[in-house]
Amino acid sequence: MPDLERRMTMVYVEPVGTGASGRLADPRDYTIATYCHFLHAVIRHLGHDKVALLGHSHGGFVAQRYALDHLGHLSALVLYDTSPVTGDDFWAAAVAALQDFARLHAPERPGVTSFVGELTTRPEVDDDDGATAILRKIAPAYFHDYWGREADFAPGREALRMYAAPAWGQEPPFDVRGELPGVTVPTLVVAGADDFICGPHWARMIRERIPNGQLAVLERTGHLGHIERPEEFAALVRDFLVG
């Protein structure tokens, strides 16, 4: 997020099991609690009394849980394209939205009809290349208009990497709806209007439960507003955090 780097210090976390971070011995241990444990270690290592925490998508689940467990370490919270709950209803809504996407684009791009199956396929625990291939294939669904701006987005699509082992974590469905009133730090909730998986419905659910929160919806934007509309996204976050 280079636009934000110009005004503040950004620390990007590669969660355990991804990027250059290490791997867990047992893939079943990739849980929200595990990610919070390592995130807390990073924040303590930074040596600041408080930080502003931005969590995107699954990172938003971790950020919510972290805020609930370690509120005293936060000055502010940004929850971006995420949800306070997963489970059957959450996934059914995502599948239905992706089916709508496929119906819209199938006449010109028949390959999109396989996107739903790819989304719900769990890769083999050690098959990073296979997981990456799936993510790159279905990546257009995460944008408002991928093909209309393919020249802008294609290089990033080819650079995407996915790590398979974290998909094997075993834990109950995520649900912090009843706890969110305990998040009392200033909170910005951001969602892309056309995000098929963590759109405005889930963002409003968070906003309604956090007493000191505000909601921003980016129009004509999918799951990756910081890429599709970087200036608008950066302005939202920058104005919220530093004015």
Score class of each variant (00 low, 15 high):
V183K: 02
R28V: 13
F240S: 08
Y30H: 09
D129N: 07
F196D: 00
F101A: 03
I197N: 08
Q170C: 07
F143A: 06
S83F: 04
P172V: 03
H58F: 15
R207W: 13
L160E: 06
E232Y: 01
F196M: 11
E150P: 00
R103Y: 09
I134A: 14
L71A: 15
G182L: 11
R161W: 02
L68A: 08
M8G: 10
V13K: 03
C36A: 13
E171I: 04
Y146G: 06
F115S: 03
G213T: 02
R229A: 13
V13I: 12
A76Y: 00
G60L: 06
A234C: 08
G169M: 04
H144R: 04
G225Y: 07
D239F: 03
E171P: 05
P230M: 05
F38Y: 14
A167S: 15
R238I: 10
T121L: 09
G213M: 00
P140D: 08
A106W: 06
T34V: 11
G148Y: 05
M1F: 04
M205Q: 13
D127E: 08
C198L: 00
G156K: 05
R177Q: 08
L119Y: 13
R204V: 11
A97E: 05
L160Q: 12
T132F: 07
A216Y: 01
S57Q: 05
V11F: 06
P15Y: 08
L160M: 15
I43Y: 03
V116H: 00
V42A: 14
G60Q: 01
A216L: 03
